[in-house]
């Protein structure tokens, strides 16, 4: 069987802002759900500077509900989620200080896909909420810690991403998913 060659990646660039972010992109949990947690943090480049133009996508695994976006009936513009279904998908751009925040439901881990100007091919990582995990145990302890969110207060977790290591922090573990081309 012929296997087609894949289309290569290119950077998201700096100007995705009017295309990809959508209202309510970080509000993954259904509105008012009592189990809702907040996950937030900052993303940093190799010099320790916050990255103000990154885009983060979050995926809980599926099948989630089909999309839940609402459109303005006149302009057709997306005006947010209807807040009922759990789609499992979120998307937020970082702010000027490199900060992002989402509100979602608890899970063993969240999958994160990271895009930024300067990054020619996206990066995958994961946010874990506990160190008790078979995959985490295969990692050396210092780097394992980069995948575990820190509880800040009740139902609020901090998860920073460092694209490169530095004096006071390790490089975040990034993942790949080898193809088993058949």
């Amino acid at each position: 069987m012929t296997v087609l060659e894949p289309t290569p990646s290119q950077t998201i660039g700096p100007f995705y802002g009017y295309a990809l972010p959508f209202a309510g992109g970080g509000e993954i949990a259904p509105f008012g759900h009592p189990d809702t947690i907040t996950v937030h943090g900052c993303v940093y480049d190799g010099a320790g500077a916050p990255i103000p133009d990154a885009l983060l996508e979050f995926w809980h695994g599926g099948p989630g509900a089909p999309g839940s976006l609402r459109h303005d009936p006149v302009s057709g513009k997306v005006i947010g989620r209807h807040g009922v279904h759990f789609t499992g998908f979120g998307r937020v751009p970082t702010d000027a200080d490199g900060h992002y925040a989402i509100r979602t439901l608890p899970a063993p881990y969240l999958s994160v896909c990271f895009f930024a100007r300067g990054l020619l091919h996206h990066l995958f990582t994961r946010i874990y909420f506990s160190a008790q995990d078979a995959f985490l145990e295969t990692l050396e302890p210092a780097r394992r810690a980069t995948l575990i969110a820190t509880p800040e207060r009740d139902r609020v977790y901090r998860f920073d991403i460092h694209l490169q290591g530095g004096a006071d922090h390790d490089e975040t573990v990034f993942l790949e998913f080898p193809s088993s081309a058949t």
Partner: peptide, 25 residues
């Protein structure tokens, strides 16, 4: 790209239950 790429190797995931094997609808 100089300050915005990881320097460590990516860690391969072979888990057939990985949530990344599914996709948003």
């Amino acid at each position: 790209s100089i300050l915005r790429h990881p320097k460590q190797s990516l860690i391969p995931i072979h888990d057939p239950e990985a949530i990344e094997l599914t996709t948003p609808v």
